[in-house]
């Protein structure tokens, strides 16, 4: 068993969930998403985010639109699709369940 691998696997599932959650509060462009994730210490390096966003987009959970920005190049604003919302809802439920059951297991020691 490789602990790093396990950790990565654990994080991976959660990361997708978190991105969806962050976006559920409104459309954001990558830098903003990164900021929120960094606040929560979920992401160490930014590079991780882009392939994730791409995958979620390819799975039709996210969509994006271009918006001009005042300071720099046009920004890509990501938005949850209806499917993504549905997905998020289910994930939330699963997460809640998971947290309670995991906590129970851990505390039972």
């Amino acid at each position: 068993m490789n602990i790093e691998n396990t950790k990565a696997q654990m994080k991976k599932g959660v990361l997708e969930f978190c991105i969806l959650s962050v976006l559920s509060n409104g459309d954001l462009y990558p830098s903003e998403i990164i900021e929120k994730m960094k606040e929560a210490k979920l992401i160490v390096v930014e590079g991780t985010l882009y392939p994730l966003l791409m995958r979620l987009k390819n799975d039709d959970l996210l969509s994006y639109r271009w918006e001009e920005s005042l300071t720099g190049p046009p920004r890509k604003y990501y938005k949850l699709t209806p499917l993504g919302k549905q997905y998020l809802k289910e994930l939330k439920a699963t997460w809640a369940e998971l947290v309670t059951s995991v906590n129970k297991t851990i505390e039972k020691k």
Binding site: A8, Q9, K11, K12, V45, E46, G47, T48, P51, R55
Partner: peptide
């Protein structure tokens, strides 16, 4: 350093 090395993306792109 902020973006991270491609190595660090490892876990993410495996599937694809």
């Amino acid at each position: 350093a902020v973006m991270g090395k491609p190595e660090d993306f490892a876990g993410e792109s495996e599937n694809s």
